[in-house]
């Protein structure tokens, strides 16, 4: 039997990760909205203000983690939704890799943006 065996069970793991990221996102998304719409009004945002926030290591790391968790949660959610609708076979494999690529690009670009916002590089 050439079956691939791994103790890392992908289906159940994705389910668990979806929940773990959800718990994290609930808190951070609420915080993000509060900070950038109620404490600082979106209309008053300038690069200088962004730079001050992003230069703090804790805030920077939180935002990067927020990006990664959000991307995983969203892209995985989209994939699940499509599988629930009966997506199968080659189409499923294609969609899976498209989503993985899109998600990775989003994270990479997001980190580039975050780094640029610190104004340090």
């Amino acid at each position: 039997m050439a079956e691939h065996y791994s103790s890392f069970e992908p289906k159940g793991t994705r389910w668990l990760l979806q929940r773990l990221t959800a718990a994290f996102l609930v808190v951070v998304l609420a915080y993000h909205f509060m900070l950038l719409h109620f404490i600082n009004h979106a209309a008053d945002i300038t690069f200088a203000g962004t730079q001050v926030r992003m230069s703090q290591l804790g805030y920077f790391l939180t935002m990067v983690l927020f990006l990664i968790a959000g991307t995983f949660h969203g892209v995985n959610g989209v994939y699940n939704a499509l599988v629930n609708q009966g997506l199968d076979g080659t189409q499923k494999t294609v969609v899976k890799w498209l989503l993985i690529v899109a998600g990775t690009l989003l994270i990479v670009q997001g980190i580039r943006v975050a780094v640029a916002m610190t104004g340090l590089f």
Binding site: G12, W15, V83
Partner: peptide, 8 residues
Amino acid sequence: EQEHGVWR
């Protein structure tokens, strides 16, 4: 726990 089991 197959893909088309409980996770759906």
